[in-house]
Design a protein around this nucleic acid. Structure first.
Lengths: 332, 332
DNA sequence: AGTGGTTGAGAAACCCTTTTCTCAAGCAGA
DNA sequence: TCTGCTTGAGAAAAGGGTTTCTCAACCACT
């Protein structure tokens, strides 16, 4: 391991050419004899030469670096998104600056400025809610911005899971299982995903010629506790459901636990479908949850690729990109 | 918003000085009249000048950039660590390259090479297990490396939670609650944390003059299912415990659920303490779990700061740094 | 007037790579 | 032999900063 990094001067000297020639040989540009090109390449390889990206970026105006902004420290959504971004971009030789800003506008501004100073080619903004923006305005930057799983600007690319399609899949699955009286237990009505999923729930029932029960949609918090409570409410009435579509896996788990405590068998008496495919919840539920996966890693990948296209000046359709969800069938 | 970034040439021209003088004025180096310095600064501010980090790094040999390598995409441990790193470093003007490598040596090598090409000042390696290394050798790099929550080289700085201290706190808490017959349900014996926590469990009991029950330590998987099963085993015997220290929160939750199903009240009949303070599990348990928090965000912060000190050539004590855990008392 | 020390600021080199422009050599054709 | 074209390679500038070195101007003393 050479303690000092080799420069192109070292390569040029060792190959007895100028740095210009060396550069051209290594980048496969310019004109020279195949023999010279090969010789320079061999020498570079022997010396373990690796070009200094900084110097290269200085002239090329491309740093092959993007910034990833997130407001989520503990949640489960951003990690797969980030992994997807990282994975999607490494193939293009692009590295990712990670910045966590957690609802702090000043911190966010500092991070954005730092990224801009480091000449990022673009920025990906990601968060935990699709209906809340990050605490910083990214609309007039000199670099392109892509939003993923957070509220984006209308004139920018924004990637979100297709909640409606995912919810349809879930309800259709219940219907295909022969369920007729299907309820929906979900989170706070202030969340857009709640509205989307609830709308899809109603539509799916209508489309199948089933009626939406009078108190079919129960809104509460995103917690197991609420799933538990909601089942208590449902079972206190006369028209008990035989299928439940839950707004997330935690609610579903609370519901399944409550059903078990009432000696209602899942899935023979009642089928339950969750949302999120949060494995730690879904797989530990007894029985394991059938649930909707939002394919967040893929979403992150696409966000990265979209940004690269924008950076390259390629045409990219602006607006909301809804990426399909898939149903993971387990035991519930 | 100027579409083209201002350079120091623009500042120099506007202030009618040379770039050398401008640079010195802005960096508070060199000699010049206070008046000139102020004027240049004012001009720079007006123009919205921000120095190009790339150009600066090229001469200074410091990129104010570090790489963060992780093998964890879905787990819960790395996200707070990463957030802590990011938080601890931004104060030093250092940005973080995020790289997820997930057990893929080739991918890891690509990422490391990319980081080195981008002249990172150092690398932080982080993972999900303290007794498994990342799939890439970082021992002969030209930049310093700090390990956090992953197996590090003996001659490097490695930060891990103090499992022993955390476990002692947990068991002492049970003892302070007056519990006499304390069991330990934990994960696979192949994990070093299992050994550490189990050792601390035994030692704490001895120190308090309590005996370790014959089958006091039950090793299994890290799942709720196993916590459930283990309680069944314990309660099938004669010598039922009145306190349970669990190796993680999932096991604890399984145990608490099993106890409830047996009509054993938590915490009046049996006290349970978990490990990890994984809020999504601990807070949703009925009753909410008392558990050990590993302070992972702080661990990440420290990792970042340690790396900065290494980069600055300051003395840093090598070896294993064990960071204290804290007990979060809830309802169990 | 000559000497010496300080002050303020600029010229130029440097960091590493890419790129444009120039140019000598070689060759074909007239 | 002269002209014109192609080929291979290098000189130099650019990219945006930092830093070292130089130097003129000014002041205070002899």
């Amino acid at each position: 391991m050479p303690s000092e990094r080799m420069t192109i001067y070292d390569v040029a000297k060792a190959a007895r050419v100028s740095t210009a020639t060396a550069s051209k040989a290594l980048n496969d540009t310019g004109r020279m004899s195949a023999e010279t090109r090969d010789r320079i390449r061999r020498v570079a390889l022997e010396l373990g030469f690796r070009p200094n990206s900084l110097a290269r970026s200085l002239t090329s105006k491309r740093s092959f670096t993007v910034g990833l902004l997130t407001d989520d420290t503990y949640g489960r959504f951003t990690l797969p998104v980030m992994a997807g971004v990282s994975e999607g971009l490494i193939d293009h030789g692009v590295s990712v600056f990670l910045c966590t800003v957690e609802d702090n506008p000043d911190l966010a501004k500092i991070h954005v400025d730092a990224m801009l100073d480091k000449q990022v080619d673009g920025i990906i903004a990601t968060g935990k809610r699709i209906d809340k923006p990050l605490p910083v305005d990214l609309s007039h930057l000199s670099v392109p911005v892509v939003y993923a799983l957070t509220e984006g600007r209308p004139d920018a690319v924004t990637l979100v899971p297709d909640d409606r399609q995912g919810a349809l899949r879930a309800v259709e699955h219940l219907i295909a299982r022969g369920r007729k009286r299907i309820a929906h237990i979900t989170g706070p009505g202030s969340f857009r995903v709640v509205q989307e999923r609830a709308g899809a729930y109603s539509d799916a029932l209508c489309a199948a010629g089933l009626e939406v029960p009078p108190a079919g949609i129960l809104r509460g918090s995103w917690s197991e506790r609420w799933g538990h409570e909601a089942v208590a409410t449902l079972w206190s009435g006369a028209d008990r459901p035989d299928g439940i579509f839950c707004g997330n896996d935690q609610i579903a788990r609370g519901a399944v636990d409550a059903l078990r405590e009432r000696k209602v068998d899942v899935p023979s008496d009642v089928s339950v479908v969750g949302f999120d495919n949060w494995e730690i919840v879904a797989e530990q539920t007894r029985p394991p949850l059938t649930t909707v996966d939002m394919n967040l890693k893929e979403l992150g990948r696409q966000a990265g690729l979209a940004l690269v296209r924008l950076v390259n000046g390629e045409a990219v359709e602006k607006g909301l990109w809804k990426l399909p969800c898939s149903l993971v069938v387990r035991g519930s």
